[in-house]
Design a protein around this nucleic acid. Structure first.
Lengths: 351, 351
DNA sequence: CCACAACACTGAAGCGCGTTAGTAGAGCGC
DNA sequence: GCGCTCTACTAACGCGCTTCAGTGTTGTGG
């Protein structure tokens, strides 16, 4: 059994289970009442006698009855479900999810998760959510174009998380990317850095703003001539590639602003392998403060986004829009700030 | 706008959108045919004329019609959806998800994701899946007890991933934990290690087997007296705690077998901070080979589980059970093997 | 010219529930 | 005894879809 066909063994035989899930009618007939009454009792509406109520509840429990959400949806015309699209290997999205669940539950909504993966693009992921009649869409790190987003938004309230869309007709929640990046640049400049490079995140969420903020901040410090953006992505691989690129050049920058933490990890990895000390020779700053950045010897200096608040506000936006049918699209901008850890330091002495 | 109330600005006004999603009836009346026919055409069943077919398809497209999966489920009595429970911050689960989606799609099934988080336990997560009438359950890293699992399994085919349940009446897919651990121990012993400690994963998936395999392997090498299991979890924090514990003792072991990669990261982190060199003074082995282990200077020696194959087999198990109604519960055991990288080396010379 | 099949299509029932309108009976005041 | 209000309950419709059992029309062979 090296690496060929997996072994399979029979381990007993499962019950010839009935596999029939009980319906409301089952509960009703068991209790000797009408289905309507069961429905009332189960939803806590008034109108049933105390005795009967208790009996119905007991029987429902005994039978293991669970309301069928599909039927509920159909009957009441709404699903009470929020659809959340995430990129399953963006640790920051994971942090967001953790904040989204409790807030949704608090407000009485279900959460439907749909992940993009290599091979499962946004359209598919969102399509799945729509098919299940989510009442609102929360898109984490969408890279869809404006037209596409408008289309979603026309059908169902849509909240864009982690990205801003100029003049769009949909809600968005994101951090003040500009501020975080500016802080990072200010800090590096203060340490004495001038040759500060930025690895960007292509079309991924927040990238545009971070790129622009980087340029602006550099200019404010009169460092126009040192502005340099290396095209990248929000992945470790992109960081590695950027590292290789830099290693192949004559002259390393003294500091790098990565597109996000993952990219920073990859970069540090390849720099270290290339014999370059971080932060001795090159300082590295990440973005997100995903929980990995605190750990391992990485100890990454990064720009913190408050996932809890972002997630919470995203849910609230969606729900408010749903329940108050507000007409104005809203942009929630949360604060972001630099967290200084161990991957940054004064620039090396230039040779 | 430091860290107080987030700024909110109005950014325009959304369309007073109709927000009415088109139904089959809409398509039917537009096309001047019956709903039945629309249903047939949209599902590619024969029985409609070529012209009419084309027209219906065109109109459905123009209207942006999407079948309502709730109604479909109700009507045809099955959801064609697999429910997957995952722990959102277990990177290994993420790898599994990536394999599950395509295989499910290939077999014509939807995937419903439900995450456990701190504050959202397994019951809740599985409950949500059941409410949506998933036809089968795929549980990644469940730590539910046997009784609970039996209960799930009685209602709907259930596949347990990453864990084995002795004599249970449900399918399971996992790696040969024993083999991986044995390889790791063999390797360490071969390098000359004797004081090999194991940090376990409490009740988390695979832990029991790994713990037992560790003990067995140690005994086979006549290292009974060095057997030591430190209670832990599959998290970085547990690794950090274990590291602190070890640092506080007189005598460090020469090698540690962590419960999984995350735990290994935490351990390495705290050892490094404590001035202990890895692998110079202590060798560390992880478990999972989650994609992080290749990266950063960690370069973790670990036991590889083939996420692709595990995910694929999990889906196949569920679907086969669903479609062939097989009666025997089956256990799929996949191979696992040690991947040697940079966190292991010969033991330090004992003082 | 009739029987019969093949084709293109339709009507109606029903999935499990929520909801609206309604009923039957008890209690009460006068 | 009448009208009234309450309480405790039920019948029936419809959500959007699939499916089963047809219906009507055309073509074919004898």
């Amino acid at each position: 059994m090296t690496n060929g066909v997996p072994s399979q063994r029979e381990v007993g035989s499962s019950s010839p289970a009935p596999r029939n899930r009980p319906t409301m009618d089952d509960v009703a007939s068991q209790a000797g009442v009408s289905r309507t009454l069961v429905s009332l009792v189960l939803r806590g509406k008034p109108g049933a006698g105390a005795e009967t109520s208790k009996r119905i509840l007991r029987i429902a429990d005994e039978l293991g009855y669970r309301p069928d959400s599909a039927a509920q949806l159909l009957a009441r015309g709404r699903s009470r479900a929020l659809g959340v699209m995430m990129n399953v290997d963006q640790p920051f999205h994971v942090d967001l999810i953790k904040a989204i669940y409790p807030e949704a539950e608090r407000l009485g909504y279900d959460v439907l998760l749909s992940a993009t993966t290599p091979g499962r693009d946004e359209r598919k992921a969102v399509g799945a959510l729509l098919d299940h009649r989510c009442e609102a869409l929360i898109l984490l790190g969408s890279s869809a174009d404006a037209a596409q987003l408008e289309r979603y938004s026309a059908g169902v309230p849509t909240v864009l998380v982690g990205r801003r869309l100029a003049g769009a007709m949909l809600d968005s929640v994101h951090t003040a990317e500009g501020k975080g990046v500016r802080q990072a640049v200010d800090y590096l400049v203060e340490l004495g850095h001038r040759r500060i490079v930025h690895i960007d995140g292509d079309r991924e969420s927040g990238s545009v703003d971070r790129r622009r903020a980087y340029r602006t901040a550099m200019r404010r410090h009169k460092l126009d001539e040192f502005i340099r953006v290396i095209p990248g992505h929000h992945t470790e691989d992109a960081g590695i590639d950027a590292g290789q690129l830099l290693l192949g050049e004559d002259d390393l920058p003294t500091a790098v602003l990565a597109g996000n933490d993952r990219c920073a990890f990859g970069l540090i990895h390849s720099l270290s392998r290339g014999g370059v000390d971080v932060p001795g020779q090159v300082s590295v700053v990440g973005y997100d403060d995903s929980h990995l950045s605190h750990l391992s010897q990485l100890d990454l200096t990064t720009v913190r986004q408050d996932a809890d608040r972002i997630g919470t506000y995203a849910v609230r936006s969606a729900v408010e829009r749903l329940e108050q049918g507000g007409l104005d699209s809203r942009e929630v901008v949360l604060d972001s700030k630099l967290v200084v850890r161990g991957t940054t330091g004064p620039p090396r002495a230039e040779h």
